[in-house]
Design a protein around this nucleic acid. Structure first.
Lengths: 206, 206
DNA sequence: CAGTGTGAAAGTCTTCACAGCT
DNA sequence: AGCTGTGAAGACTTTCACACTG
Protein backbone atom coordinates (compact mmCIF):
# COMPACT_ATOMS: atom_id res chain seq x y z
CA UNK A 1 0.00 0.00 0.00
CA UNK A 2 2.59 2.62 0.93
CA UNK A 3 3.67 3.05 -2.69
CA UNK A 4 6.63 5.12 -1.49
CA UNK A 5 7.54 6.26 1.98
CA UNK A 6 4.73 8.35 3.38
CA UNK A 7 5.63 11.38 5.53
CA UNK A 8 4.89 10.78 9.19
CA UNK A 9 2.94 13.98 9.38
CA UNK A 10 0.54 12.60 6.80
CA UNK A 11 0.09 9.38 8.75
CA UNK A 12 -0.66 11.45 11.84
CA UNK A 13 -3.64 13.05 10.10
CA UNK A 14 -5.28 9.83 9.00
CA UNK A 15 -6.74 9.07 12.45
CA UNK A 16 -8.26 12.53 12.38
CA UNK A 17 -9.94 11.77 9.08
CA UNK A 18 -11.16 8.50 10.48
CA UNK A 19 -12.66 10.24 13.48
CA UNK A 20 -14.49 12.74 11.29
CA UNK A 21 -15.81 9.97 9.07
CA UNK A 22 -17.15 8.07 12.09
CA UNK A 23 -18.97 11.15 13.22
CA UNK A 24 -20.42 11.62 9.74
CA UNK A 25 -21.53 8.03 9.64
CA UNK A 26 -23.26 8.43 12.98
CA UNK A 27 -24.98 11.42 11.46
CA UNK A 28 -26.29 9.18 8.68
CA UNK A 29 -24.12 10.56 5.88
CA UNK A 30 -23.28 8.20 3.03
CA UNK A 31 -21.02 10.38 0.92
CA UNK A 32 -18.71 13.24 1.61
CA UNK A 33 -16.18 15.37 -0.24
CA UNK A 34 -12.73 16.62 0.57
CA UNK A 35 -14.29 20.05 0.93
CA UNK A 36 -16.80 18.93 3.49
CA UNK A 37 -14.21 17.07 5.53
CA UNK A 38 -11.90 20.04 5.29
CA UNK A 39 -14.50 22.36 6.70
CA UNK A 40 -15.27 19.91 9.47
CA UNK A 41 -11.61 19.63 10.41
CA UNK A 42 -10.48 23.17 9.77
CA UNK A 43 -7.85 22.28 7.19
CA UNK A 44 -7.68 22.62 3.41
CA UNK A 45 -9.40 20.26 1.01
CA UNK A 46 -6.27 20.03 -1.10
CA UNK A 47 -4.40 18.69 1.87
CA UNK A 48 -6.89 15.93 2.43
CA UNK A 49 -6.82 14.89 -1.21
CA UNK A 50 -3.05 14.98 -1.29
CA UNK A 51 -2.77 12.98 1.92
CA UNK A 52 -5.11 10.29 0.67
CA UNK A 53 -3.37 10.16 -2.69
CA UNK A 54 -0.32 8.69 -0.98
CA UNK A 55 -2.26 5.50 -0.42
CA UNK A 56 -4.46 5.14 -3.47
CA UNK A 57 -7.46 6.60 -5.25
CA UNK A 58 -10.43 6.34 -2.97
CA UNK A 59 -12.80 8.95 -4.38
CA UNK A 60 -15.07 9.29 -7.36
CA UNK A 61 -14.92 12.44 -9.44
CA UNK A 62 -18.03 14.49 -9.14
CA UNK A 63 -19.27 12.41 -6.20
CA UNK A 64 -16.60 12.45 -3.54
CA UNK A 65 -15.90 9.64 -1.10
CA UNK A 66 -18.09 6.92 0.34
CA UNK A 67 -18.07 7.51 4.07
CA UNK A 68 -18.07 3.80 4.87
CA UNK A 69 -15.64 2.96 2.11
CA UNK A 70 -13.05 5.53 3.04
CA UNK A 71 -13.29 4.54 6.67
CA UNK A 72 -12.54 0.97 5.75
CA UNK A 73 -9.57 2.01 3.66
CA UNK A 74 -8.16 4.11 6.47
CA UNK A 75 -8.60 1.28 8.93
CA UNK A 76 -6.68 -1.00 6.61
CA UNK A 77 -3.89 1.51 6.21
CA UNK A 78 -3.61 2.11 9.95
CA UNK A 79 -3.73 -1.60 10.80
CA UNK A 80 -6.97 -1.14 12.66
CA UNK A 81 -8.79 -4.10 11.23
CA UNK A 82 -7.70 -6.05 14.26
CA UNK A 83 -8.07 -5.10 17.89
CA UNK A 84 -4.87 -4.12 19.68
CA UNK A 85 -4.37 -5.10 23.31
CA UNK A 86 -2.81 -2.47 25.56
CA UNK A 87 -1.32 -2.53 29.02
CA UNK A 88 -1.44 0.43 31.35
CA UNK A 89 1.43 0.96 33.73
CA UNK A 90 0.54 3.14 36.70
CA UNK A 91 -2.71 2.93 38.65
CA UNK A 92 -2.88 6.48 39.96
CA UNK A 93 -5.26 9.21 38.87
CA UNK A 94 -4.38 9.13 35.23
CA UNK A 95 -3.87 5.41 34.89
CA UNK A 96 -7.26 4.77 36.46
CA UNK A 97 -9.03 7.32 34.30
CA UNK A 98 -7.47 5.90 31.18
CA UNK A 99 -8.27 2.34 32.20
CA UNK A 100 -11.94 3.25 32.51
CA UNK A 101 -12.07 5.42 29.42
CA UNK A 102 -14.81 3.98 27.25
CA UNK A 103 -13.42 5.49 24.07
CA UNK A 104 -10.92 2.74 23.22
CA UNK A 105 -13.23 -0.15 22.55
CA UNK A 106 -14.78 1.05 19.32
CA UNK A 107 -11.66 2.53 17.89
CA UNK A 108 -9.41 -0.49 17.74
CA UNK A 109 -8.01 -0.98 21.23
CA UNK A 110 -8.64 -2.98 24.36
CA UNK A 111 -7.02 -2.36 27.72
CA UNK A 112 -6.11 -5.76 29.08
CA UNK A 113 -4.27 -5.10 32.29
CA UNK A 114 -3.16 -2.42 34.71
CA UNK A 115 0.15 -2.59 36.56
CA UNK A 116 1.68 -0.71 39.49
CA UNK A 117 4.58 -1.10 41.87
CA UNK A 118 2.82 0.20 44.97
CA UNK A 119 1.96 -2.71 47.31
CA UNK A 120 -1.04 -0.74 48.52
CA UNK A 121 -2.50 -0.62 45.03
CA UNK A 122 -1.59 -4.11 43.87
CA UNK A 123 -4.62 -6.32 44.20
CA UNK A 124 -7.07 -3.44 44.39
CA UNK A 125 -9.61 -2.82 41.67
CA UNK A 126 -9.45 -0.04 39.12
CA UNK A 127 -12.76 -0.28 37.32
CA UNK A 128 -12.95 -3.85 36.12
CA UNK A 129 -9.21 -4.43 36.37
CA UNK A 130 -7.33 -5.87 39.30
CA UNK A 131 -4.06 -4.01 39.61
CA UNK A 132 -1.13 -6.36 38.99
CA UNK A 133 2.42 -6.17 40.26
CA UNK A 134 4.65 -4.53 37.71
CA UNK A 135 7.06 -7.44 38.16
CA UNK A 136 4.56 -9.56 36.30
CA UNK A 137 4.64 -7.22 33.33
CA UNK A 138 7.33 -8.99 31.29
CA UNK A 139 5.63 -12.34 31.52
CA UNK A 140 2.23 -10.86 30.72
CA UNK A 141 3.43 -8.89 27.74
CA UNK A 142 5.26 -11.87 26.30
CA UNK A 143 2.45 -14.29 26.93
CA UNK A 144 -0.18 -12.10 25.28
CA UNK A 145 2.16 -10.73 22.63
CA UNK A 146 1.41 -7.12 23.48
CA UNK A 147 3.08 -4.26 21.65
CA UNK A 148 1.37 -1.18 23.08
CA UNK A 149 1.76 0.33 26.54
CA UNK A 150 0.48 3.46 28.15
CA UNK A 151 2.72 4.83 30.85
CA UNK A 152 1.01 6.77 33.62
CA UNK A 153 3.53 6.76 36.44
CA UNK A 154 5.26 9.69 38.15
CA UNK A 155 7.98 11.41 36.14
CA UNK A 156 10.74 9.93 38.27
CA UNK A 157 9.86 6.33 37.46
CA UNK A 158 8.83 6.74 33.84
CA UNK A 159 12.17 5.96 32.23
CA UNK A 160 12.69 2.92 34.40
CA UNK A 161 9.24 1.59 33.63
CA UNK A 162 9.70 2.28 29.92
CA UNK A 163 12.95 0.32 29.93
CA UNK A 164 11.20 -2.61 31.56
CA UNK A 165 8.31 -2.46 29.10
CA UNK A 166 10.64 -2.34 26.12
CA UNK A 167 12.71 -5.22 27.44
CA UNK A 168 9.46 -7.16 27.66
CA UNK A 169 8.60 -6.62 24.02
CA UNK A 170 6.64 -3.37 23.95
CA UNK A 171 7.38 -1.37 20.81
CA UNK A 172 4.98 1.57 21.07
CA UNK A 173 4.45 3.75 24.12
CA UNK A 174 1.93 6.42 24.86
CA UNK A 175 3.57 8.36 27.65
CA UNK A 176 1.59 10.49 30.10
CA UNK A 177 4.57 11.27 32.32
CA UNK A 178 6.03 14.74 31.81
CA UNK A 179 9.48 13.56 30.71
CA UNK A 180 11.18 12.74 27.45
CA UNK A 181 11.77 9.04 27.32
CA UNK A 182 14.95 7.77 25.74
CA UNK A 183 14.18 4.65 23.75
CA UNK A 184 15.85 2.44 21.15
CA UNK A 185 15.38 3.06 17.46
CA UNK A 186 12.69 0.43 16.98
CA UNK A 187 10.35 1.82 19.64
CA UNK A 188 7.90 4.64 19.00
CA UNK A 189 6.85 7.04 21.72
CA UNK A 190 4.09 9.62 21.71
CA UNK A 191 3.58 11.97 24.61
CA UNK A 192 0.59 13.51 26.29
CA UNK A 193 1.30 16.36 28.68
CA UNK A 194 -1.61 18.73 29.20
CA UNK A 195 0.64 21.35 30.75
CA UNK A 196 2.63 21.62 27.54
CA UNK A 197 -0.58 22.53 25.72
CA UNK A 198 -1.61 25.01 28.36
CA UNK A 199 1.78 26.69 28.35
CA UNK A 200 1.63 26.90 24.59
CA UNK A 201 -1.72 28.68 24.79
CA UNK A 202 -0.72 31.15 27.49
CA UNK A 203 1.76 32.60 25.04
CA UNK A 204 -1.19 34.03 23.17
CA UNK A 205 -3.01 35.30 26.26
CA UNK A 206 -1.43 38.71 26.60
CA UNK B 1 9.79 40.59 22.94
CA UNK B 2 8.44 38.97 19.81
CA UNK B 3 10.74 40.93 17.52
CA UNK B 4 8.76 39.66 14.54
CA UNK B 5 5.99 37.15 14.35
CA UNK B 6 7.21 33.89 15.77
CA UNK B 7 6.08 30.66 14.10
CA UNK B 8 3.56 28.79 16.21
CA UNK B 9 5.57 25.61 15.93
CA UNK B 10 8.46 27.37 17.64
CA UNK B 11 6.22 28.58 20.46
CA UNK B 12 5.01 25.01 20.88
CA UNK B 13 8.54 23.83 21.63
CA UNK B 14 9.29 26.39 24.32
CA UNK B 15 7.32 24.54 27.00
CA UNK B 16 9.35 21.47 26.16
CA UNK B 17 12.55 23.39 26.75
CA UNK B 18 11.15 24.68 29.99
CA UNK B 19 10.33 21.18 31.13
CA UNK B 20 13.83 19.96 30.35
CA UNK B 21 15.37 22.90 32.18
CA UNK B 22 13.28 22.20 35.28
CA UNK B 23 14.47 18.63 35.27
CA UNK B 24 18.07 19.81 34.94
CA UNK B 25 17.64 22.23 37.76
CA UNK B 26 16.25 19.47 39.96
CA UNK B 27 19.36 17.53 39.05
CA UNK B 28 21.47 20.40 40.36
CA UNK B 29 22.76 21.64 37.02
CA UNK B 30 23.65 25.33 36.76
CA UNK B 31 24.62 25.60 33.12
CA UNK B 32 23.70 23.75 29.99
CA UNK B 33 24.30 24.00 26.26
CA UNK B 34 22.10 23.68 23.22
CA UNK B 35 23.82 20.38 22.57
CA UNK B 36 23.00 18.98 25.96
CA UNK B 37 19.38 20.06 25.76
CA UNK B 38 19.18 18.67 22.25
CA UNK B 39 20.37 15.27 23.36
CA UNK B 40 17.95 15.31 26.25
CA UNK B 41 15.05 16.14 23.98
CA UNK B 42 16.00 14.18 20.91
CA UNK B 43 16.13 17.16 18.56
CA UNK B 44 18.98 19.10 16.97
CA UNK B 45 21.01 21.71 18.81
CA UNK B 46 20.68 24.08 15.86
CA UNK B 47 16.94 24.01 16.23
CA UNK B 48 17.10 24.98 19.85
CA UNK B 49 19.45 27.87 19.17
CA UNK B 50 17.36 29.05 16.25
CA UNK B 51 14.15 28.83 18.26
CA UNK B 52 15.58 30.84 21.13
CA UNK B 53 17.03 33.41 18.76
CA UNK B 54 13.51 34.52 17.90
CA UNK B 55 13.21 35.99 21.35
CA UNK B 56 16.63 37.31 22.19
CA UNK B 57 20.18 36.26 23.00
CA UNK B 58 20.11 34.23 26.15
CA UNK B 59 23.38 32.30 25.96
CA UNK B 60 27.05 33.02 26.43
CA UNK B 61 29.52 31.83 23.82
CA UNK B 62 31.77 29.14 25.17
CA UNK B 63 29.61 28.66 28.26
CA UNK B 64 26.07 27.96 27.11
CA UNK B 65 22.93 28.92 29.01
CA UNK B 66 22.25 29.46 32.68
CA UNK B 67 19.63 26.89 33.60
CA UNK B 68 17.85 29.24 35.97
CA UNK B 69 18.24 32.24 33.70
CA UNK B 70 16.87 30.58 30.61
CA UNK B 71 13.97 29.18 32.56
CA UNK B 72 13.07 32.65 33.72
CA UNK B 73 13.25 34.01 30.19
CA UNK B 74 11.02 31.25 28.88
CA UNK B 75 8.52 31.85 31.67
CA UNK B 76 8.40 35.51 30.72
CA UNK B 77 7.89 34.73 27.07
CA UNK B 78 5.13 32.23 27.78
CA UNK B 79 3.36 34.51 30.27
CA UNK B 80 4.01 32.07 33.07
CA UNK B 81 5.18 34.55 35.64
CA UNK B 82 1.65 34.67 36.93
CA UNK B 83 -0.56 31.76 37.89
CA UNK B 84 -3.44 31.01 35.52
CA UNK B 85 -6.76 29.84 36.92
CA UNK B 86 -8.51 27.08 34.99
CA UNK B 87 -11.99 25.63 35.07
CA UNK B 88 -12.71 22.03 34.25
CA UNK B 89 -15.99 21.18 32.59
CA UNK B 90 -17.00 17.56 33.02
CA UNK B 91 -16.67 15.57 36.21
CA UNK B 92 -16.42 12.08 34.77
CA UNK B 93 -13.34 9.87 34.63
CA UNK B 94 -11.16 12.27 32.79
CA UNK B 95 -12.38 15.46 34.42
CA UNK B 96 -11.81 13.96 37.86
CA UNK B 97 -8.36 12.69 37.02
CA UNK B 98 -7.36 16.05 35.60
CA UNK B 99 -8.81 17.90 38.60
CA UNK B 100 -6.63 15.87 40.92
CA UNK B 101 -3.54 15.94 38.76
CA UNK B 102 -0.78 17.37 40.91
CA UNK B 103 1.28 18.53 37.94
CA UNK B 104 -0.40 21.87 37.34
CA UNK B 105 0.50 23.72 40.49
CA UNK B 106 4.22 24.15 39.91
CA UNK B 107 3.96 24.82 36.23
CA UNK B 108 1.80 27.91 36.22
CA UNK B 109 -1.78 26.75 36.62
CA UNK B 110 -4.41 26.29 39.28
CA UNK B 111 -7.66 24.42 38.83
CA UNK B 112 -10.31 26.51 40.54
CA UNK B 113 -13.58 24.76 39.85
CA UNK B 114 -15.16 21.71 38.29
CA UNK B 115 -18.53 21.85 36.52
CA UNK B 116 -20.99 19.26 35.28
CA UNK B 117 -24.57 19.13 34.11
CA UNK B 118 -25.47 15.82 35.73
CA UNK B 119 -27.66 16.41 38.82
CA UNK B 120 -26.22 13.27 40.38
CA UNK B 121 -22.73 14.70 40.22
CA UNK B 122 -23.50 18.30 41.14
CA UNK B 123 -22.70 18.82 44.79
CA UNK B 124 -20.52 15.73 45.07
CA UNK B 125 -16.81 16.00 45.71
CA UNK B 126 -14.08 15.39 43.15
CA UNK B 127 -10.90 15.53 45.16
CA UNK B 128 -11.03 18.87 46.93
CA UNK B 129 -13.57 20.37 44.54
CA UNK B 130 -17.30 20.40 44.93
CA UNK B 131 -18.84 19.86 41.51
CA UNK B 132 -20.81 22.93 40.43
CA UNK B 133 -23.74 23.18 38.09
CA UNK B 134 -22.60 24.10 34.61
CA UNK B 135 -25.25 26.84 34.63
CA UNK B 136 -23.09 28.69 37.09
CA UNK B 137 -20.17 28.64 34.70
CA UNK B 138 -20.75 32.01 33.02
CA UNK B 139 -21.00 33.86 36.27
CA UNK B 140 -18.00 32.09 37.73
CA UNK B 141 -15.81 32.70 34.70
CA UNK B 142 -16.73 36.37 34.54
CA UNK B 143 -16.35 36.94 38.24
CA UNK B 144 -12.90 35.38 38.42
CA UNK B 145 -11.81 36.60 34.99
CA UNK B 146 -10.87 33.13 33.78
CA UNK B 147 -9.54 32.54 30.28
CA UNK B 148 -8.64 28.85 30.30
CA UNK B 149 -10.98 25.88 30.32
CA UNK B 150 -10.44 22.16 30.01
CA UNK B 151 -13.34 20.31 28.45
CA UNK B 152 -13.80 16.71 29.55
CA UNK B 153 -17.38 15.91 28.61
CA UNK B 154 -18.71 13.28 26.20
CA UNK B 155 -18.22 14.01 22.51
CA UNK B 156 -21.91 14.80 21.98
CA UNK B 157 -21.92 17.70 24.44
CA UNK B 158 -18.50 19.11 23.77
CA UNK B 159 -19.45 21.71 21.17
CA UNK B 160 -22.36 22.95 23.23
CA UNK B 161 -20.22 23.27 26.32
CA UNK B 162 -17.48 25.01 24.35
CA UNK B 163 -19.97 27.55 23.03
CA UNK B 164 -21.13 28.26 26.56
CA UNK B 165 -17.60 28.62 27.83
CA UNK B 166 -16.65 30.97 25.02
CA UNK B 167 -19.74 33.07 25.54
CA UNK B 168 -18.67 33.37 29.17
CA UNK B 169 -15.26 34.75 28.29
CA UNK B 170 -13.05 31.70 27.88
CA UNK B 171 -10.46 32.21 25.14
CA UNK B 172 -8.34 29.07 25.36
CA UNK B 173 -9.62 25.52 25.52
CA UNK B 174 -7.87 22.26 26.15
CA UNK B 175 -10.29 19.74 24.73
CA UNK B 176 -10.29 16.09 25.82
CA UNK B 177 -13.42 15.19 23.86
CA UNK B 178 -12.77 13.33 20.61
CA UNK B 179 -14.31 15.95 18.33
CA UNK B 180 -13.12 19.00 16.44
CA UNK B 181 -14.54 22.05 18.08
CA UNK B 182 -15.60 24.94 15.88
CA UNK B 183 -14.67 28.18 17.59
CA UNK B 184 -14.38 31.87 16.72
CA UNK B 185 -11.15 33.36 15.49
CA UNK B 186 -10.09 34.76 18.85
CA UNK B 187 -10.28 31.43 20.70
CA UNK B 188 -7.48 28.87 20.72
CA UNK B 189 -8.15 25.17 21.04
CA UNK B 190 -5.72 22.33 21.64
CA UNK B 191 -6.85 18.75 21.64
CA UNK B 192 -5.88 15.65 23.57
CA UNK B 193 -7.17 12.38 22.20
CA UNK B 194 -5.11 9.36 23.19
CA UNK B 195 -6.75 7.22 20.53
CA UNK B 196 -5.37 9.48 17.80
CA UNK B 197 -1.88 8.81 19.09
CA UNK B 198 -2.46 5.08 19.33
CA UNK B 199 -3.86 4.90 15.82
CA UNK B 200 -0.89 6.84 14.57
CA UNK B 201 1.45 4.32 16.13
CA UNK B 202 -0.34 1.21 14.88
CA UNK B 203 0.51 2.31 11.35
CA UNK B 204 4.08 1.36 12.14
CA UNK B 205 3.23 -1.95 13.81
CA UNK B 206 3.14 -4.21 10.78
C1' DC C 1 -20.91 20.10 -13.42
C1' DA C 2 -18.93 18.93 -9.19
C1' DG C 3 -15.19 17.10 -7.35
C1' DT C 4 -10.90 14.05 -7.65
C1' DG C 5 -5.89 13.35 -8.26
C1' DT C 6 -1.60 15.65 -9.19
C1' DG C 7 2.44 18.12 -11.09
C1' DA C 8 4.40 22.50 -10.25
C1' DA C 9 4.84 26.67 -7.40
C1' DA C 10 4.88 28.75 -3.09
C1' DG C 11 5.67 28.67 1.51
C1' DT C 12 7.52 26.95 5.83
C1' DC C 13 10.84 24.64 8.75
C1' DT C 14 15.26 22.51 9.68
C1' DT C 15 20.01 21.96 9.12
C1' DC C 16 24.49 23.58 7.83
C1' DA C 17 28.47 25.87 8.63
C1' DC C 18 30.97 29.52 10.25
C1' DA C 19 32.07 34.35 12.11
C1' DG C 20 32.64 35.97 16.42
C1' DC C 21 32.54 36.16 21.47
C1' DT C 22 34.22 34.49 26.22
C1' DA D 1 38.82 25.67 22.95
C1' DG D 2 33.89 25.69 23.29
C1' DC D 3 29.64 27.29 22.13
C1' DT D 4 26.35 30.91 20.57
C1' DG D 5 23.60 33.33 17.00
C1' DT D 6 22.58 33.50 12.18
C1' DG D 7 22.47 34.02 7.05
C1' DA D 8 22.13 30.78 3.38
C1' DA D 9 21.08 26.17 1.70
C1' DG D 10 18.41 22.37 1.78
C1' DA D 11 14.40 19.60 2.97
C1' DC D 12 9.89 19.20 3.69
C1' DT D 13 4.75 20.64 3.46
C1' DT D 14 1.06 23.01 1.76
C1' DT D 15 -1.42 25.26 -1.68
C1' DC D 16 -2.56 26.23 -6.37
C1' DA D 17 -4.77 25.33 -10.43
C1' DC D 18 -6.24 22.40 -13.88
C1' DA D 19 -6.75 18.13 -16.82
C1' DC D 20 -9.76 14.64 -16.35
C1' DT D 21 -13.69 11.66 -15.00
C1' DG D 22 -18.41 9.89 -13.57
Amino acid sequence: MPAKRVPDIVVARLPLYLRALSAMQNGGKEFTSSQEMAQWLGISSAQIRKDLSHFGEFGKQGTGYSVAGLQEKLRQILNLEREWPIVIIGAGNIGSAVANYPGFAHRGFRVCAVFDNDPKKIGSMVGIYEVCDVHQLPEFVREHDIRLAMIAVPAESAQEVADLAIASGITAILNYAPVNLIVPEHVRVENIDPVLHLQHMTYYLS
